[in-house]
Amino acid sequence: MAEPRGKGKDSPELRTFGAEVRRLREAAGLNQTALAALVHVSRAYVSHVERGKTRCRFDFANRLDGALRANGEIIQAWNELLETIKSTKYATYFVNFPKVELTAGLIRVYETHIVNGLFQTEAYAGAILKNPDDTASRMGRQKQVMCSPMPKIFVVLEESVLLRQVGTVEVMREQLDYLLDLSRRDGIRVQILPPVYVEEARAAFAIATQSDRSEAAYIVNATEGVTSASAEDLASLNETFASLQAEALNVRDSRALIRKVIEERWT
């Protein structure tokens, strides 16, 4: 089968495929040099595939699958890549947000009721999801998104989220301690929104921005989330996020408020 064509190199789709190869390689306990030796290519070529810098052929994907004992997972990922790049662009209301998020260089999040999934502790996530398999899946996704090179992540969190009990008091204390820790990491900015009215903000949402500046959004509604790459939706959400950041506490004051809530409510 021929090499996939139709999308430029270094696309979100290629980076998604590369991230899956990297995940399976690391799960197999191999570095890039060892994998390269198994499939008879240079380490640089393996690196280019994992970083989404080149489009590998099906026969190479097949060799990777065998070398990593991936049981068809790499072949499935390659086939999904092929199907995706057959289209010329994302459908306006049919974007796979988790895949777009995985390859984003910038993620912006507004949360109204709970801590965002990327920042949840396992205990906090477990109290929300109930199902252990769903919790494990969320933890795995966190690891994928937060691995190097990690995207910049800006979060505006409503103050009520800090006060709303999810699980036990111990679960809440651990969650807010973890939020504090994350807020000190390079590339992560956490701001708390006081109980003020921001006219444009009507629901939680996330925006994932790629290195080529293309964007997709995930918008929470009453029953399920809606994913959109509509220019109109994204323009509105970008404006809303700017308004939220303007009304939110700055990063230092946000940390101080989180510490205060931990001491006064969750200790």
Rank of each mutant, 00 (worst) to 15 (best):
R23L: 06
R23V: 03
L24R: 04
R25Y: 06
R25H: 07
R25K: 08
E26M: 06
E26A: 03
E26F: 03
A27P: 00
G29E: 01
G29I: 01
L30A: 00
L30C: 01
N31A: 09
T33V: 14
A34T: 05
A34P: 00
A34D: 04
L35P: 03
A36Y: 02
L38A: 12
L38R: 12
V39G: 02
H40T: 14
R43F: 10
R43T: 14
A44Q: 14
Y45T: 06
Y45A: 04
Y45W: 08
V46Y: 05
S47C: 11
S47A: 14
H48D: 11
V49H: 00
E50C: 10
E50H: 07
E50T: 11
E50D: 09
R51S: 11
R51W: 08
G52M: 02
G52P: 03
T54E: 02
R57G: 13
R57F: 08
F58H: 10
R63P: 03
R63Y: 03
L64Y: 01
A67F: 00
L68C: 07
L68Y: 02
R69S: 13
R69C: 09
A70F: 06
G72C: 05
I75G: 05
Q76S: 14
W78E: 04
N79L: 15
L81I: 05
L82Y: 12
L82M: 14
E83D: 15
E83H: 13
K86S: 15
S87K: 06
T88V: 11
T88S: 14
K89S: 15
K89C: 15
Y90I: 13
Y90Q: 13
A91C: 08
Y93T: 12
Y93D: 15
F94K: 13
N96Y: 09
F97D: 09
P98A: 06
K99D: 13
K99S: 15
K99N: 14
K99I: 11
